[in-house]
Simulated assay, not measured.
Amino acid sequence: MSQSSAPMSHIPNPMKKKVLAALMAVVIGHVAVLFAVSHMKTPELKKIEKDPIKVRFVQIKEDAPPPPPPAEPVKPKVQPKPEPKMVKPQPVVKPKVIAEKPKPKVEATKPIVVDDRKEELKKEQERLEQQRQNQERLEQQKREQSQRDQAERERKAQEQAQAERDRLAREQAARNTPRTLSQGQISWVRSPKPSYTNKDLQGSDRVIVVAIEADTSGRVTNVRVTKSSGVPALDQKIVRSVQNAKFKPYKENGVAYPFKAEQPFELKLNSNG
C-alpha cells in the first residue's frame, strides 16, 4: 500500500483528479453495461411452419481422392498480444433458416397411344360375339317354341283319339244294346215252324208268347217263354222252333243293331185229328 501510494504522491493534484475521473467513468460504464445486459429480454422466436423436406437419395459415384498437397514449412506460432477483456452482451439467437431443397422433377407420363385399328378390330369382334349370342338365343327360343307346339299338337291328337275312342265305344255300346221292336218292325228270313198235334194241345186251342233276342246279323241268341200255353212240353217245342229260325238284321241309318221282341203263337186243334 505504501509503495502504490508513493508514486501517486508525486503526481500533481489536477492530474490526479483526471485519472480518478477516468477510472470512475470506466467503472460506471461497465456497471451500466452489466445492468443493461441483465435486464435485456430474449426475443421470442416465431415458429416457422415449413413443408417437410423431400429428400431423394442419389447414389454418388465416389471419385478417387486427390493427391495430398505438398507439405508446407511449419511456421512458428506468434503469440497474440493480450487484449483487455471486455464484457460483451449476449448475442441474439437468430432462427435457423432451413433451406428447402429443390423438389425432384417428376417426368410427365407419356400418353398411351392406342392403335385405332386394334380398337376397331376389338369392337368388331365384340359385335360379332354379341350377334352370335343373340342368334343362339333366337334359335334356342325357336327350338323351345317348336317343342311346345309339338307337345300341344300331340296333346290335341291324344284328346281327339280319346274322343274318337269314346265315340266308338258309345256307338259300340249302343249297337250292343238291343233295340225293343214291335212285331211290325221285324221280318223273318226263316220263320219258325212249330210241329205239334192235337195230343200236344191236350184237346183245346193254346196261346204261347215268347221273348226273342237277336244279334246284328239277325241270328236268334235267346228265347224265353213270357206266357205259357199251359203245357210245358208244348212250350219247349215252340221254343226250339224259334231257335232254329232267323231274322233280317235290324238297321238304323245303315247301322245294324241287335234287338228284342215278343212273338205270340196261336196253336189250334187240327180238325182232321
Rank of each mutant, 00 (worst) to 15 (best):
T177H: 12
E154C: 05
Q160R: 13
P178Y: 04
Q158M: 05
G184N: 13
E164W: 11
Q150T: 07
I208R: 03
R190G: 10
I208W: 03
S191G: 13
A157R: 04
S191V: 14
R155K: 04
T180E: 15
Q162V: 09
N198V: 01
T197K: 02
K199Q: 15
E213I: 14
N176L: 03
P192R: 00
R190F: 05
S195I: 15
K199G: 14
A169P: 10
E171Y: 08
K156N: 10
E159F: 06
Q162E: 13
V207Q: 08
K156E: 12
N198R: 00
I212S: 02
V207I: 14
T197N: 02
R148S: 05
E171L: 11
E154I: 08
S187H: 07
R170L: 12
K156A: 06
R165E: 05
R148W: 06
A174F: 06
A163R: 08
A173N: 14
D149M: 03
R148P: 02
K193T: 15
D166L: 09
E171R: 11
R155H: 00
R153F: 00
S187Q: 10
S182W: 07
E154S: 08
L168I: 03
R155T: 01
A163H: 07
A173I: 11
E213Q: 15
R165W: 05
N198K: 02
W188I: 05
T177S: 15
R155Q: 04
Q202C: 10
R170S: 12
T180G: 13
V209S: 14
E159N: 05
R190M: 07
T177N: 15
I212E: 00
I212F: 00
I212R: 00
R190Y: 10
R190E: 11
E213G: 15
P194T: 10
D166S: 05
W188T: 04
L201K: 02
D205M: 06
D166E: 11
D166V: 07
N198T: 03
T180K: 14
Q158T: 02
K156Q: 13
A161W: 06
R175T: 09
P178N: 03
P178S: 06
T180F: 13
Q202T: 09
S191P: 12
D149Y: 03
V189H: 04
S187G: 07
R153I: 04
Q158I: 00
L181P: 05
A163P: 06
R153V: 02
R206S: 01
R148F: 04
T197W: 01
S204F: 13
A174D: 13
E159T: 06
R155M: 02
E164N: 09
L181F: 05
Q183C: 11
R190A: 10
P192F: 01
S182A: 07
V210E: 08
K156W: 10
V207M: 09
R179A: 01
E152N: 13
A174K: 12
V207Y: 11
R179S: 04
S187E: 12
R153Q: 02
K199W: 12
E213W: 14
E152H: 10
P192S: 01
I208T: 08
Q172F: 10
W188Q: 06
W188G: 06
